[in-house]
Structures are given as structure tokens and as C-alpha cells.
Design a protein around this nucleic acid. Sequence first.
RNA 1: GCCAGCGUAGCUCAGUGGUAGAGCAGCUGAUUCGUAAUCAGCAGGUCAAGGGUUCAACCCCCUUCGCUGGCUCCA
Length: 626
Amino acid sequence: MENKETASSKKIITEKGRTLKDLLAGPDIIAARVDGRLVDLSTRLDEGKEVEPISVHSKEGLEILRHSTAHVMAEAVKALFPDARPTIGPATDDGFYYDFDRDKPFSYEDLAIIEKKMSEIIAADKPFSRKEISKEDAIRYFAEQNEPYKVEILNDIEDDTVSLYTQGDFTDLCRGPHIPSTGYIKAFKLLSVAGAYWRGDERNKMLQRIYGTAFASKDELDDYLDFLEESKKRDHRRLGRELELFMMSDEVGPGLIIYLPKGGMVRSILEDFEKRLHLKRGYNIVYGPGILRGELWKISGHMDNYRENMYFTEVDNQLYGIKPMNCLAHILIYRSKIRSYRDLPLRYFELGTVTRHEKSGVLHGLLRVRQFTQDDAHIFCMPDQLIDEIVSIINLVDEVMALFGFDYETEISTRPEKSIGTDEDWELATSALKQALETKGLDYDINEGDGAFYGPKIDIKLKDAIGRKWQCATIQCDFSLPQRFDLSYIGQDGRKHRPVMLHRVVLGTIERFMGVLIEHYAGAFPVWLAPVQVVVMSITDAQRGYAQGIVEKLKENDIRAELDARNEKIGYKVREARSMKVPYMAIVGQREMDEDTITLRDRSGRQEKMSIDGLISRINSSVPKI
RNA sequence: GCCAGCGUAGCUCAGUGGUAGAGCAGCUGAUUCGUAAUCAGCAGGUCAAGGGUUCAACCCCCUUCGCUGGCUCCA
């Protein structure tokens, strides 16, 4: 979303007795900031205050607009469905929602009716008015209105005074601020209905949520709706089928991926790339088994903290856990020898396939599956090497994300409720992560209670070509498992010391990363990743042998080439190669055959005649240096 | 797992309480062609599965499975 600076964002000084609305002219100004607080335009202030107008085009202004639109929606819903009890209705990153408690869920047909009612409320241009009352009065009011959720929220508020906002027939408990009147809503749309737990807790009652969005102008709303359409076109599930990359099958089971030859090719390229990348950076490639004894998962704490995500099986009366993570084998590799401080850090890398029982409702194409392969590594190091190791992982992530054209954001997730280890260790681990990010000069958010059960983590959210965020890479700092498995190294002093362990993935998982890549590139992979790099196509049968020879020569030079010598018109072949998003077409007719050349057509439709060696060097030079 | 919607040919989608349709893809033949669709013919389905209502169910009801959008959870 844009954050437009407008001419009216300069500060002004208030005059006594006049409302901000009198002072801040302009249809785009919907609120103001005074003393760092956002306030309504109806506010009357003392003389001499410095006031910053808030435009609907700013990020904060848009949020206010959307929040107000949520109130209007609640008014419409209450008018149309008196049995619906309002709960909460905030603005979100790209719109708003309002949750209602209602026995009968809303249907998509209801949305049109609600939209119509909202349009009437907007056309009536009803003012939003703010009233401050005591908490007790507010509780009494909402109890009378038969709105128990508002009463429950009020009971959790510590302030003695709360604010209510009223527009038309609807009054809501709300901090504000709001737009001056409903007529300020110029463009809105209701998008979907969904169930949502009261206060986001699955033990609570499920409420009925309506999602919508609002924008400062009709054009911006249309742009957003176009963006949603564009996202649909890029959907990796659709492209995965169209480009013959992967499939899923009811017969196999949900959340399980079958790679078709083209998707298998892409995966194999990614995996080769990763192996070279890690070998060059001092990692050792290892492999662990897919099932490990139950006893091991008890020691690690998975049995107590991760059991609901694990599958178990029994072999010869022994309990085995199917691995949901790759760390245990790596720990055993570390422990298989006595380690000296001189050996550290040790970095074990595995393209490890793990299996996790994900709840059925969360599965989603390649992005959320039940069996997946992580580009996983575990680094064992001395405590004083920790920061350097984290920094070099961040550097690696940085390099790889740049290669694929992703920008990213970082956040730190701290200790969750279900976890192992001492507070001191968690503190140490968390501060190491913070320090590493600070060393790199990276900003980060804190995500309280969202760490892994064995340690805090840095989550890296990458941003794709159309601005969507995806969680792929993560770096987790762990003091607990080395302790649980009694890992040690002999220090310079000849005594045993405890190493620290880092768990980290860069792409995250091959599945998710491929899904994200497909959407990022809209299926048009860069040449080095494209499953088919060039299709050699003949104009007529007379060039079949020539074209065949070119394909063979390309393949000898490690180029992924296919022949299209079918008895079809060239336009048909071009069309098909374009829809399969093949980067290059090498077209050969009589002219090219006579000159021993090809006509190369790229994705943009640009064409040039060149030698076959020219084509080989062009394609091979596209492979990134790592 | 929870809420809602959906499930018809490989894909995209029509369709009706009374024997199942189109386009594309596929196959066969003709066409030998210069940059996004040559023409003709053929074939393709236990209408997700199981049960029920009915003289009769793809259609109505129930159950299960799967998918989609959310919620919770997550790489």
C-alpha cells in the first residue's frame, strides 16, 4: 500500500474554540495528530497546539477509513440481522473485518444485501460522534443493548473512562479516531465470510466474520481488486498444473506432493545449487534416517512438546518416530567422536525430508504440506563463535534472496509456553540473535512467544514480486538440545565444554520455496531454473533432422532442450512454448538450415539470428556464480 | 481440528427428479505452412464415495472423503 505524502501534511497551529475540522480544510483530511495522538476532526483544542493533519491517503488515514467502514458494516448488519451480536471489528493490513456472534452464518448473498445497506448509510452521510463515559456506565449500556461481548471487553479494560462512537443507529465501544461522517467512505467492498474464534482461541466459540476493504478512491479499490485477480493468475497450484510441475492425488492423500518431470527438474536444480552453495561455505553434507527410536524423541523433548505433529510407527515391538525435524541425527553425528575446540564450528547440512501431521484445514498447495524437504543445517559451535555464525547465516540468506530477487524482513520469536531449557539460556540465545541482527544493521520486530520449543529464532519473511510476504528462512539458537544430549568439546584448557547449536534453513523447504518461486516469477522461471530452457522448433519436416541435431548438441552442453518437430504451424508451436513459459525458442526453417544458424526468440518476443554456439554460451552464462 | 462454500471428461465449465453436454487437451487422417490456435473425424464420464427418500436421483436428505476461503497452528 502506498503512503502518499500530501501537500496538506504540514503542521498548523490551532486557534481557540474552533474544531480541527474548521482549521483543516480538504476532503482528504479525515483526522489529525495532536501531541502524538490521533484524534477526530471534531476535537476542540486549546490555542497554540501543533496539529498534523492526517490524510486518507496516508497509511494511518487509510486505517482510520477502514476501521470506520467496519463500523458502518456493523451498523448495516445490526439493522438487517438484529440477532447478530457485534464483537470486534478492526482494520487489517489490507482492509477490515467485523466478527459477529450469530447462530446462522452469513452467506455470500447476504454480503450484497449488507453492501446495499452500507451504501445507504454512506449516502446519508451520518456523522461519527465521540462520547466519553465511565466504564460502569458503558457496561450498563452494553448490557442493556444485549451485547455481552462488549461487556466482556469492558471488564478487561483498566481505564475508568472509555469512549463510545455513534453513527446513525449504531454505537460501538471504540478508541477511535474515526472519519467525520460516513460520507467520507468513497470506495468499499465486502469480500468474504469466514468463521473465526472469539479472541482467536480455538477453545472459544466460533464467530461469523465478514471481511471487506475500503480505499480512498474507487480507482485504488479497483487496483486492489486487480491485484487480487493477478494473485489468482499467479497461484502456484494453477501454474503447477498448467506447467506440469507437480500434482496431488486423493489416492495418495492430502498434503503430499508428487513431482512431475518438469517440477522434478526444477527441484533437482535447486538441490544441486544448494549442495554446491553449502559445500563452498564449509558445510558437510550428511543424511539421517527417516525414522528414529521413540526413546530419542523423548530425550530431545519432542515427545512432550511436539507429539501432536508427529507420526509414530512400531517395528519389532519398538516405538519409532517418523522424523519431523532433522536435528537428531545431526546431534548423533556430532556425538559420534570426541570433539576439540579446534574442530568447531561444525556445520552439517542435509536436504532432509520430514513428515509432520499438519491439521487438515491448513494444507495449501506446496505452501503447507505434510511431507517436505528442508535445506536444513545444524551448526555446533563455541559460545563465542555464535554471533559470527549467525551473521554468516544471515549473509548467506542475503545472498540467496538477492539471487532470486526477494527483499525480506526479519523478526525475532521468543520463548513459547511449551518449551524446554532455563530462562538464562533463553535470554542468552535471544540476545545472541538480536546482537547478530544489530551487527548486520537489520531492523526486526519481536514476536513474543513464537519461538521453537528448544530455542528462540530469527524468522525471515521474504517479499515477492507483487509484495506478498512469505516465511521461508529461519535461524534458531539452541542451548537445550546440546545439554539434553550431553554434547561436549574439549576446550583449550583440556576440559569439557558445552557447544551451542544453531538450527537453520535458507530456502526453508523445497516445497514452499518452489511454490513461492512459481508465484514470484508467475511461472516464468529464470533461464537457469527453467525446466526446459529452449525448444527447438522446425518450420517444416524438411528441417527435422537439422533441428534434432541442434537439440542433441545443446544437450551435450548441459542445456535442457526439447524438440518440437510436430507437423504444426510455427505459430502453434510458438504459442504452446509461450504458454509453457519456456525462456527461449530456437526456430529453424530453410534459411537457418542453409546458414547453420537458428533464429532465437526470447520471452519478450525479441528475435535474433545466431550460431548454435552463441546460443549455448548465452544459456550457460545465465547460471549464477555462487 | 473448527466455520462456511464447493466436488460433472485430463483441464475450464454448462446442465435437468425421467438414458449426461461444450470448448480446450488427447487420438486418427489430411495439410508442409516463418513467429500466440489449419481442417475433418474419433474417443473420452459408476456425475467424489457410501447410504437413504422416490416408480425413477448427477439433482432432494444423511454420512464419509477431498478441495477452496477463513480461524487456530506453521517451514
